[in-house]
């Protein structure tokens, strides 16, 4: 039997990309109506659940803690994670966090993870490859730097054995196998697994799982270290791009390939 694992999965509550998304207000933050658990974080949760299940799951003492930082609505992302199978939820929320960039977000999340670690040491932090709203992929690397932990990003496979993790990373020109001692921060791609959906049993079970709410005071962070004042970047202006409009649509009558070439020639693209 393997050692048990205490895993923190970072899940973000993000605007659903199926709807129009907008930047608003003085700090150009995203509108958060119609938000969901970031699809890319479902892969992180699935990776954590598979590692925990391989060791006997929650019954054997493995923990999968879903941690989300965000306004009140973010609790919905945590609830979804609990329905899918996380063992407990943690919601870091504070008015002062609004407008945090990656640097401020990673500072707050690092403090929250240290706080959780004071109860039981955290073995592994698993994140998505990018948030579907911020799209920077900065948070996992900044978190690793702040926590002084090894970072394995964009893992397309992940194994843990005897306190050592092994992962595969695919780049354009090469694939790499990487190794790091635990504890570590890992971000996973959408190639790593096929995330499960919450089932009826999971939805019922989630009702009995606990969600802890943490404020900045609970994790020892000053309001000035986060939010707009604590961010190291600021958005000066944002302009919506005019949406693309449809052009000419034709139906093939046997010569559409030729018409396509005519179009390219007219556009000087040949």
């Amino acid at each position: 039997m393997e050692d048990t694992l205490n895993i923190v999965v970072l899940v973000k509550h993000v605007p659903d990309a199926q709807f129009d998304r907008h930047l608003n207000g003085e700090g150009y933050t995203t509108d958060r109506d119609e938000s969901i658990l970031s699809e890319l974080d479902e892969y992180a949760l699935e990776a954590a659940l598979q590692l925990a299940e391989a060791r006997g799951g929650a019954k054997a003492g493995n923990q999968v803690i879903a941690l989300s930082m965000g306004p009140s609505g973010a609790v919905n992302a945590i609830k979804k994670a609990l329905q899918i199978g996380a063992t407990e939820g943690v919601h870091l929320t504070d008015d002062a966090l609004a407008g945090s960039d990656a640097a401020a977000t990673s500072l707050a999340l690092a403090a929250a993870i240290r706080h959780l670690g004071s109860d039981a040491p955290v073995d592994l932090v698993i994140t998505g490859m990018a948030s579907t709203d911020g799209e920077t992929s900065l948070v996992p690397a900044q978190l690793a730097e702040r926590l002084g932990l090894p970072q394995v990003t964009f893992a397309s496979s992940l194994q843990v054995e005897g306190g050592l993790l092994t992962a595969r990373r695919d780049a354009d020109l090469s694939s790499e196998t990487v190794e790091a001692p635990l504890p570590a921060v890992v971000s996973v791609t959408d190639q790593i697994n096929e995330p499960r959906y919450p089932n009826f049993k999971g939805i019922i079970a989630a009702k009995r799982k606990s969600i802890t709410t943490l404020s900045l005071a609970d994790i020892g962070v000053q309001p000035a270290q986060v939010g707009f004042p604590g961010s190291w970047t600021s958005i000066l202006a944002a302009e919506e791009r005019p949406p693309r409009t449809a052009g000419t649509i034709i139906t093939d009558e046997g010569d559409a390939g030729i018409k396509l070439v005519d179009f390219l020639a007219a556009q000087k693209l040949l």
Binding site: A246, D252, L260
Partner: peptide, 28 residues
């Protein structure tokens, strides 16, 4: 995809693409 296309062809790609390829080769 047609909502964002400047030029859209409703048709079977297995007809349209080879025909376009042959036409480009001919013109070049």
């Amino acid at each position: 995809v047609f909502e964002i296309a400047d030029f859209g062809i409703v048709g079977d790609l297995f007809d349209v693409l080879p025909q376009a390829t042959a036409e480009i080769k001919k013109r070049k």
